[in-house]
Computed example of a mutant assay.
Amino acid sequence: MDQIKNNTIDAAKLDLIVSRAIGDLSAGYGGVMVSIGHRLGLYKAMAKAGRISSHQLAAITGCAERYIREWLGSQVAGGYVIYDAASHSYELPAEHALVLAQDDSPVFMAAAWAIPASMWADEDKALDAFRTGAGIPWGDHDGRLYCGVASLYRNAYKASLVAEWLPALDGVIEKLKAGALVADVGCGHGHSTALMAEAFPSSRFRGFDSHQESLDEARQVVATAGGTERVTFETARADAYSGSDYDLICFFDCLRDMGDPLAVAKHAARTIARNGTVMLVEPYAKDGVDDSISPVARMYYAASTTICCAHAISDGGHIVLGAQAGEKRLAEIFRKAGFTRFRRAMATPFNLVLEARL
């Protein structure tokens, strides 16, 4: 306070950072409301109802009206719901429903709030990791992390993987249609595996992950989608999975989590077919910290701090890439592993889609 009185603080700069902090705090509070709305089915009910009162929404969802009324107030204040004062009714616009109510939409984000919830739940582990330098294995996180991550990636993959990303790779679609052998390394819940298997019935797919609980879920995902006779899953490290002569080896949003990505790339070089392709999908990032200033980069850096880097350190920490490694560092890893061709196949606001060949 003395600094402010003595005019050593720029009041405009102070107002700006205070406003930013309040906005962030408001978003954190709002995230709790979004998660509640998602888990209670409030958004889904509103998406089908048009204009609706708090009493009607409470009756439809079986919730207490007084809580519903206050929750709706938070949604209006946050710009998620429109309020009509004349009729005392609320409405979820169709565009908002794509983000908050339709869980198969490519921009659905309501379930993704499970990720920061898990980060808060794991705060003591993160504090200890900061102080000791120890890692945090993927399997040691709060359980909400896995469902949140799967939800965030699943719909993006559904919208883009077969329609856009695979066609951006040289000659891969033709191989998949004819019948290829594919390794999905770090497959997690298997949504990427299932999507490819459904789209290319002549090809065979092997999913690998070191987290057994995720593979249990992956088998259920594939069983629901069909094509189980052409898909297998195996518990294995990314630098030691079985098989050879893979026409396509995929790393979907996972290389950054691995303790020795160079060893992983070298194993891919050993197991790939002569004219095979590595498909690497990582978060969109430029090559310098000063070039990565955006809401998306901030989100990725935060997750990288407590999840990606933490797991890589627990996995040996030989090379800890982080979620904002950038194309240049990723290319260097694959060139050191023996790949002679590395290029950006395409990019989105959230992802880099990269291609490597021997």
Rank of each mutant, 00 (worst) to 15 (best):
M1Y: 05
T8V: 13
T8M: 06
A21C: 09
D24E: 12
L25W: 12
S26L: 11
Y29F: 14
G30E: 12
R39F: 11
L40T: 09
L40M: 13
K44V: 00
M46V: 01
M46W: 10
S53K: 03
S53N: 05
H55P: 01
A59Q: 12
C63T: 13
R66K: 14
E70A: 08
W71M: 08
Q75R: 12
Q75T: 03
V81I: 15
V81C: 07
I82A: 02
A86G: 01
S87L: 03
A94T: 13
A94C: 05
D103R: 13
D104E: 13
S105W: 12
F108E: 08
A117N: 02
K125D: 09
L127Y: 10
R131H: 05
A134P: 08
A134N: 14
G135S: 06
I136D: 03
P137W: 03
W138H: 14
D142H: 15
R144Y: 07
Y146A: 12
C147Y: 14
A159L: 07
L161A: 12
A163N: 13
P167H: 06
G171F: 05
G171M: 09
V172A: 13
L176G: 08
K177P: 00
K177A: 04
K177T: 10
G179F: 03
A180H: 09
A183G: 08
D184P: 03
D184K: 07
C187T: 14
C187N: 11
M196H: 09
F200M: 01
F200E: 01
S203E: 08
R204Y: 11
G207R: 08
S210G: 09
H211R: 01
S214T: 00
Q220V: 04
V221T: 15
V221G: 03
V222R: 04
A223L: 07
A223N: 08
G226H: 14
G227N: 09
A236I: 09
A238K: 02
Y241G: 05
S242Q: 14
G243L: 01
D247V: 00
C250K: 05
C250N: 10
C254V: 15
M258V: 02
L262D: 07
V264I: 07
K266G: 03
H267I: 00
R274S: 13
T277C: 14
V278L: 13
M279V: 00
L280E: 12
V281D: 11
P283T: 00
P283E: 01
D287W: 10
G288F: 03
V289T: 03
D291N: 03
P295L: 12
A302P: 02
S304G: 15
I307E: 02
H311A: 04
H311E: 12
H311V: 00
A312I: 02
H318Y: 04
I319R: 10
V320E: 01
L321G: 05
G322E: 01
I333T: 04
T340V: 12
F342Q: 12
A356R: 11
L358S: 09
